[in-house]
Amino acid sequence: MFYPNSPQTSPQLTQIPYGQQYAMMQRQIQQPYHPFATTEPQARLYPYHYQGPIQQEQGGFITQQSTAASPQYVQMRVTPVDQSIMSGYPNQTANGSSSSSFNYNIHPQQQQQQQQQQQQLRHHAMPVGSVPLQDDRYRKQLIVNYLAPDVTSTDLHELFSRFGELDGARIIYDKQTNMSKGYGFVYFCHAEDAKEAVERMSGYEFHGKWLKVGYSTNPLNIVPSNSSPYVHAGSRGAAG
C-alpha cells in the first residue's frame, strides 16, 4: 500500500523548493479562506456584503464582478436614472436638479381664491374633541361614552347635575331594538360647569363602566337656548 506522503511516492527534499517541504498533501497545500485577509477597505468593513468592485458596462447597466450573493443577503441591482424623465418638472436647472418651490404660472386672482378656499376649509374642519370658538353652545354640550346598558337618562342627569344647572341629558337608544347604544349627551347651562365635568368625570366608574367624557361637536345635538329642557323620564321611549 502506498500513501500520498510515503517515501516511495514523495520526491527528495532537495528537489522541493524551500517553504513547501512540509506541504505535501493536497489539504495542506490548499490555503484556508480568510474573509478579512484583503487589501480593499470595503471588504474589511463589510465582509458579507462586499463582492468586489463595481464596473460600468456598455448599455448603462451596473453589474458586479463577483458571483451571486448568499441567500441570506439580498443584493440590489441599481440602474442609472434617465434624465429625460425629470425634464417635465418646473424650475429645473441645466444640471438636472430642481428647486423646492414650484411655479405653475397661476393667475394671481386664482391663487388668492385657492388660498381663501383653504382658509375656509381649515375654519370649518374641526378635529374630534375640539371646541370651536365662534359658538358658545359647543362648550356646553358633552358626550358621555361607555355607558352601561342599564343607565337611563334620569341617572345621567343626576350624575352630572352636581356640577351645575343642566339644560338636559339623554341616552341614545336603538330604534329597532330599543336598547341603549352605550353613549349619551349632557347639556349644561354654563360653559364653566361643562369644563369642570369634563375634567372630573373622564375615567369615572359608573355602573361598572369607566366613562369617557368630552365635548360634543355635532351641531345636530345642540340644544337651542330658547327651547324647553328635555324630559328626564326613566322610560326608554321618552328618553330616546
Score class of each variant (00 low, 15 high):
Y104M: 15
A169F: 01
Q55D: 07
E199L: 08
L13W: 14
Q117N: 10
S6Y: 15
D150L: 02
L142Q: 03
D193I: 01
G129R: 05
Q110E: 13
M76E: 02
H34G: 13
Q141M: 00
H232K: 01
Q31R: 06
H157Q: 08
S10G: 12
M179Y: 14
V186T: 01
Y89S: 03
Q12W: 13
Q8G: 05
G59C: 15
A191F: 04
L166D: 05
H107K: 09
R77M: 15
G234I: 01
T79L: 14
R27K: 03
N226R: 13
Q42P: 04
L159G: 04
R170E: 00
P53T: 11
N5S: 06
Y215H: 01
Y33S: 09
C189M: 11
T93G: 10
Q120G: 07
T217L: 04
Y22S: 04
T154L: 04
Q20C: 05
G59I: 15
Y183A: 00
V74E: 04
E165H: 12
S6T: 11
Q118G: 09
E40I: 13
D136V: 05
N105F: 13
Q114K: 08
Y183L: 00
V186W: 06
I16E: 12
N178F: 12
Q119S: 08
N226K: 02
P80F: 13
N105M: 14
I106N: 08
D174N: 12
A197K: 00
L147P: 10
N95L: 10
E57G: 10
G59F: 15
A233G: 11
Y50Q: 06
M24K: 03
G203K: 01
T9L: 13
T39G: 10
P132K: 04
S216A: 00
I54K: 01
Y33M: 13
S227L: 10
G237R: 08
S10N: 07
C189K: 09
G164F: 01
A233T: 06
Q30G: 08
H49M: 13
L147G: 02
F36I: 02
Q134A: 04
Y146I: 00
T93N: 14
Q72S: 07
Q118A: 09
T177F: 08
G52Y: 14
W210S: 01
P127D: 06
S66H: 09
Y187S: 01
H34Y: 13
S202K: 04
E199F: 04
I85V: 10
R170L: 01
T38G: 13
A194R: 00
G182M: 01
N95D: 10
H49I: 09
Q26S: 09
K175H: 12
Y173S: 04
H232G: 06
S70Q: 14
V128A: 09
Q119G: 10
R122V: 13
Y18Q: 09
Q141C: 00
D155K: 05
V74Y: 14
S228W: 09
L211T: 00
Q115G: 08
H190T: 04
H190W: 09
Q28I: 09
P11A: 04
I62D: 09
S130I: 05
A238L: 14
G182W: 01
G182Q: 11
H232N: 13
Q83K: 12
F36Q: 03
C189Y: 03
V144G: 02
S84R: 09
V144C: 05
Q134K: 07
Q83Y: 13
A197P: 04
L121M: 06
Y3G: 04
Q21N: 03
Q72E: 07
A239M: 01
V74W: 13
S99P: 12
V223P: 06
G203P: 01
D193Q: 09
F185M: 00
E57W: 15
R170K: 06
Q20M: 15
S130D: 09
I54Q: 05
F160Y: 07
Y3M: 11
Q30W: 02
R137I: 04
I171M: 02
